[in-house]
Design a protein around this nucleic acid. Sequence first.
DNA 1: TGTACATCAGTGAACGCGCGTTCACTGATGTAC
DNA 2: TGTACATCAGTGAACGCGCGTTCACTGATGTAC
Lengths: 202, 202
Amino acid sequence: VARSKKAARPYHHGDLRSALLKAAVELIDQRSLAALSLRECARRAGVSHSAPYRHFADKEALLLAIARQGYTWLEASGREAIACADAPLEKLDAYCVAYVRFAFEHPVHHRLMFTHPYEPHEDDAAEDDTDPGAFDLLVRCARDVVAPGEDPMPTALAAWTLPHGLSMLMLDRRIPEHLVQTPQAVEALTRTLIARWRSDLS
Amino acid sequence: VARSKKAARPYHHGDLRSALLKAAVELIDQRSLAALSLRECARRAGVSHSAPYRHFADKEALLLAIARQGYTWLEASGREAIACADAPLEKLDAYCVAYVRFAFEHPVHHRLMFTHPYEPHEDDAAEDDTDPGAFDLLVRCARDVVAPGEDPMPTALAAWTLPHGLSMLMLDRRIPEHLVQTPQAVEALTRTLIARWRSDLS
DNA sequence: TGTACATCAGTGAACGCGCGTTCACTGATGTAC
DNA sequence: TGTACATCAGTGAACGCGCGTTCACTGATGTAC
């Protein structure tokens, strides 16, 4: 907004917060989480190394912001996938597919959401940064699948475990590459694995 | 061996390599992978900060050694689990249980084996550090489960994905704690999730 | 058994590095009147 | 529309830090004769 008429970089960035998040995700993607530094993010955003502190209390806060972004996106796409399916079982499958697809499209977010150990800041209290939203969705789906009155928890966990494992193995490059080269291939693989548990493996 | 008669610490450690591996695993367990430093490992082993370089080329080599240790252990316990089961399907289940149990007992190893991005050193060539051993085991089991001549790969991946996902979620504290407090609870949960895929979810 | 010597596993000083974070500052923005 | 001023988002110097790694060294070990 109002990028100023001159080509010379304006004093104010305009949307530094977003730019930093984006730079951080790219940096982690290209190098690694260990290689992430606030200073490098600032460099990539074209800003002095202390500018980030206007937007994030510290390095951890940046990572937390990325994770939160991921929780929001995951819940949204899970919700959408469920809405598009008809039968209860199909909803569960759709959720699984959407879950793996999210990991495929946002590998850095996925890893940060689940694998990064957030040490709760003493000051900001009981802010437990897991993702109740997406999991609640899953539990609600599970409830429609199991017998009425039965605990949906085991089913919900089962339906979480499979796509989560696939996502992780995929991000860690343990799945043969040709099986996970496109979103379509990833979806097909997810459905195949689900089908295997329902046929070969029983 | 030959710890010397005096209580004073001997010049030679005796088994520094093992001590460093152990110290590293403990350090990661207590703090985090990010907090791991060779100097702190040396400190914990009661040795000068440059002593580790007699045993590991660099920090990455230490981490690699831990991962390799994990691969060996995982393959061994998978092999044993399979040997103890009778029917092909039971062998697969036993492998899954052993897999999750390994993660439960060696969380640091598990994470290092799968989640740590090893950048292949240019000098030591094509040393691809994944774990063919344990996965080959799984493929062989899968072959006995599927129809003769059919590709066992999807089944093997399916049987990997589920316990891997459970392991990861467990290590990342996403599973309700009472379900994963003891090895027995972990085994029961694993079997429950498998059963769910075979009944409720089909 | 005793001695000479190669080998090995430690030591500790030193190097350079990039990082996280703070601080006093300054340039731009927007609002009240 | 014009001016005064509070507020905000940047700057850049400075701090201290622990780390990875190297190097010349030294103490212990074990083997050949």
